[in-house]
Amino acid sequence: MGQEAPEIVFRTQGVTKVYQTGDVKVFALAGVDLELYTGEMAVLLGPSGSGKSTLLNILGGLDHATAGRVWFRDTELTDMPDRALTRYRRDHVGFVFQFYNLVPSLTARENVQLVTDVSPDPMPAEEALALVGLANRMDHFPSEMSGGEQQRVAIARAIAKRPEILLCDEPTGALDSATGVQVLEVLQDINARFGTTTVIITHNAEIQRMAHRVIQFADGKISSVHTNETRLAPSEIVW
């Protein structure tokens, strides 16, 4: 990151999300103001239920905020109709989930093609898989792969569309430490190589050490934001 004013990718203003269960109102997000910058790797840290995933869903166009406003660059996502949100996700966003969410009936290559088939300017599925180190596992079905491999397929699937933003929800949550590190290395590599803005949600405090910025969540609010002066390489992280 240079010294000049960074370009803003996402901006939120008082974003609130309320879930109503019976008579009880649960504030998943209670007024979040945040800016995310082009090319940065941001880690959203916080315990379960602190609102991280909700925010990620809203940023990714999977969900609407109850109140507040959200911008992606100059485009306001806040009240965007469903059709436009679909377009937005298709063209700009890559997702990585905790449980990989691969389609079990499709091979690694085909899972990636699921995305490249509908993206305007994708990279070949093979290239995406090669980037995550799975060039030799392309024709395997999810059931034939380890958790780490499956998550790498999911990452390949996310980056194959050359997204501007990569939103990762607990990408290492279901993995052991060694495998988790491999996945983080892939994420960092993508971030460095393509300048893809990468947002990682985690409740694993160790992972924050590889981020440019760390945004701490508690009770639906941002409790602190700090910038890492020195970042660790994923291989230096242990948990």
Partner: peptide
Amino acid sequence: RSQIGLLKAVGYSNLE
């Protein structure tokens, strides 16, 4: 369910 969520997340439209 989750596959449907995924299809939508990656940009497949409701119609698709």
